[in-house]
Nucleic acid binder design. Structure first.
Length: 343
DNA sequence: AAGTATACCAACCGCCCGTAG
DNA sequence: CCTACGGGCGGTTGGTATACT
């Protein structure tokens, strides 16, 4: 059985506090302490609910509250504590004398979160974001797995390989979108005409939603492939193929036409980067700012886009991103057990 | 100068938990 | 054990200030 909210009573004032109300509240508490918050408003002569009084006191009127800008030290403390505690604002506030949980929460939401995102960190995990660069090695691995299978790989892996490459294509598509939505880093490795210059993307809510959606999908559907350190698919017969692109229209690329696709995709990608999202050469159907918020299902590549998605996956797995991609690829070769496992 | 977009943050909302009767 | 209360908490809203076009 739930409780009725304390402010349900009609006739009680809401909204901003006047200086007179503040004075009444302060006078009362300094004289009598707050005691029961529910009883306080009547005793103090305030037409407010107790909860409202408590919040006003704890977040604003308390004499030990420090106001003004957060210092560098405070900012660093918040970042450190948030990486450990998460959104436990009161716990974080307990380490910052004079700061309220509400103030820290607001500061986080309006400053620090954006700062982390701009620096390429996931504000929740404080780790580098699962974006196109950091997951590139796995995309590469997926594509190369498929190539390997096309040339004598384990036959029982075939279906999985199709699925995996479809996943890779889907991931790549999402990541490309996410990439477009990222604000430019200080040293934008994309250079002029990069996605960060896509001026048509102005609806920040849409951008944020899409961005979080991409992150969510990547979090929920990490790349999986047999033999790797990721959680293996135990029973590939249980894979819901209905969720995948139409397999009949799925063209398994050979090594050679795969390269053609790569070249083609690289060209397309370069054109899109230089012309912006509304380029007629943009095959990825990036929604424009005038669109309403897309539903998650609209993010999934429809069957008709299968080949496009495949192309995108390939485009992302090549040297389209220059040194960044190459270095990421090198790291994969050094660090990932994938190739040792399947060798 | 006016209109619009964006940033900021105080305040509210609703859920939850501990506790007392 | 059940229920109501007090209070804490995190998420969200909406008003205001500021920046931008």
């Amino acid at each position: 059985m739930g409780r009725s909210p304390c402010c349900d009573e009609s006739g009680l004032k809401k909204g901003p506090w006047t200086p007179e109300e503040d004075q009444k509240l302060m006078n009362y508490i300094q004289k009598n302490g707050h005691g029961s918050w529910r009883a306080l408003p009547k005793l103090a002569g305030l037409n407010r609910c107790g909860k409202s009084c408590r919040l006003r006191w704890t977040n604003y009127l308390r004499p030990d509250i420090k106001r003004g800008k957060f210092s560098q030290e405070e900012e660093q403390t918040i970042l450190n504590l948030h990486s450990i505690l998460g959104n436990k604002w009161s716990a974080i506030a307990s380490h910052l004398p004079g700061r309220t949980d509400n103030e820290i929460k607001n500061f986080w939401n309006t400053h620090l979160k954006k700062k982390l995102i701009q620096m390429g960190f996931d504000p929740m995990t404080h780790r580098p974001r699962t974006d196109i660069f950091s997951s590139l090695p796995h995309l590469l691995a997926l594509v190369n797995l498929k190539e390997l299978l096309d040339h004598g790989g384990h036959p029982s892996w075939d279906e999985q390989a199709v699925r995996l490459q479809a996943e890779a294509a889907q991931m790549a598509r999402l990541q490309y979108l996410q990439c477009l939505l990222q604000p430019p880093p200080a040293n934008n490795s994309f250079g002029a005409g990069s996605p960060s210059n896509l001026n048509d993307i102005t609806d920040m809510e849409t951008i944020n939603l899409l961005s979080s959606l991409c992150s969510y999908q990547l979090d929920q559907n990490p790349p999986q492939y047999p033999g790797a350190n990721f959680e293996p698919v135990q029973d590939h017969n249980s894979i819901p193929f209905s969720h995948l692109p139409d397999l009949q229209t799925y063209q398994t690329p050979s090594l050679n036409n795969n390269k053609d696709m790569v070249n083609q995709a690289e060209d397309q990608f370069a054109v899109v980067l230089s012309q912006g999202q509304n380029s007629p050469n943009n095959p990825w159907n990036i929604p424009s700012s005038s669109n309403t918020t897309p539903s998650p299902t609209s993010m999934a590549p429809p069957v008709a886009e299968t080949s496009i998605s495949n192309t995108m996956g390939d485009a992302c797995s090549t040297s389209s991103f220059g040194g960044v991609a190459n270095s990421a690829w090198s790291e994969l070769l050094l660090e990932d057990s994938f190739f040792n496992e399947i060798a």
